[in-house]
């Protein structure tokens, strides 16, 4: 045995300072995190605006289906966004549409994410036959052409309820994320910390929920964000094709009516531009949030920007040599320090 033993003195000085504390501190640090990324703050601000419009807007808006005598009026003081061919107020319609579009988008995305989490993580963790079966299922859903299927189902349930729309979108959009989650789970379940939990006899459901799931939170959140975008776009597409109940006002339905009334050729831009713009801006805002989250959560992407001038000066000589090129095994290329 060792001739002498030194009990190491790991005093408090050894510990690097780190954040800790209650909910107030956490909130403050979350706020700091948000502010670190400009993309994240812009994205969140835009989404907050949409949510506000969707929640509060309809209470202030007049009856979106109420006809008036102002037919196809351009924007004015009484009709902020003008009127449709049948005299409905576009702004009122937009408020109501925003609410329904958001509801459909979020609900369908929640459902799709839930399915993908259960099937992806479940299969990845259980392995064996359950994994084979669940993989097969997601592969089948992956190769089914999504849009035609949605069209077929929607036309079957034409005039069907909101729930049907949500279900249809969710069912056709979970498979890809399930595969990503399965792959990630396969890698996580052989991590040492998961093995350690198995070694002290942790129950399976606890390993999945407590040890594995939190480490996939970033992926799940980003998939949810893109699922929302996908759901809103799909719904808009379906509505535009006339496959949705026309009495449910959404951005897509507004475009459908505008298209039917030949708003484009008659020059009634105020009718189709607002819903179209809403769809585009909403999608962009969600993407910004996703990229922004990546930026603040992944330290590798957290680049410090020393200042515009320096960066632009260094940009041109930055080479990213192809790592596969044989030259790169040896010190041929690379980037030298700015002096």
């Amino acid at each position: 045995m060792t001739t002498a033993d030194i009990t190491s003195a790991a005093g408090p000085a050894e510990l690097p300072p780190g954040p800790s504390g209650g909910p107030a501190v956490r909130l403050a640090s979350a706020w700091r995190t948000v502010r670190r990324s400009r993309r994240l703050s812009i994205g969140l601000a835009l989404i907050a605006l949409f949510v506000l419009l969707g929640v509060v807007g309809p209470f202030f808006a007049g009856d979106p289906n109420g006809f008036s005598m102002d037919l196809a009026q351009p924007p004015s003081g009484s009709h902020w966004l003008g009127t449709t061919q049948t005299g409905q107020d576009v702004f009122d319609q937009l408020m109501v549409s925003t609410r329904l579009s958001l509801v459909i988008g979020v609900a369908a995305a929640l459902l799709a994410t839930a399915i993908s989490v259960v099937i992806g993580i479940g299969g990845g963790f259980l392995g064996g036959w359950s994994d084979e079966t669940l993989s097969l299922l997601s592969n089948v859903f992956l190769v089914i052409p999504g849009l035609p299927l949605v069209i077929v189902i929607s036309s079957y349930s034409r005039g069907g309820s909101l729930t049907a729309t949500i279900l249809v979108i969710a069912i056709t959009s979970w498979a890809a994320s399930a595969r990503v989650l399965r792959a990630q789970t396969l890698s996580l379940r052989t991590r040492d910390y998961v093995l350690a939990a198995r070694l002290y006899g942790e129950k399976r459901w606890r390993i999945v929920l407590v040890e594995i799931l939190p480490n996939e939170a970033a992926i799940i959140v980003s998939q949810f964000i893109f699922a929302v975008i996908f759901a809103i776009l799909t719904q808009a597409g379906l509505a535009f094709l006339g496959l949705q109940n026309p009495s449910d006002l959404t951005w897509g339905n507004m475009l459908y009516f505008a298209q039917n009334a030949e708003a484009l050729s008659s020059g009634s831009w105020w009718w189709f531009v607002p819903p179209g713009l809403c769809i585009a801006v909403f999608g962009a805002a969600m993407s910004l949030i996703s990229f922004g989250l990546d930026e603040v959560l992944d330290p590798k992407l957290r680049v410090y920007r020393p200042g515009r001038q320096k960066r632009s000066r260094r940009q041109p000589d930055r080479q990213h040599p192809d790592r596969q090129h044989p030259d790169q095994q040896q010190p041929i290329q690379g980037e030298e320090a700015a002096r």
Partner: peptide
């Protein structure tokens, strides 16, 4: 890396 001038940003001499 500095000796071979292969430093990559954010490192700089």
């Amino acid at each position: 890396y500095a000796l071979t001038r292969m430093l990559k940003a954010p490192a700089r001499m």
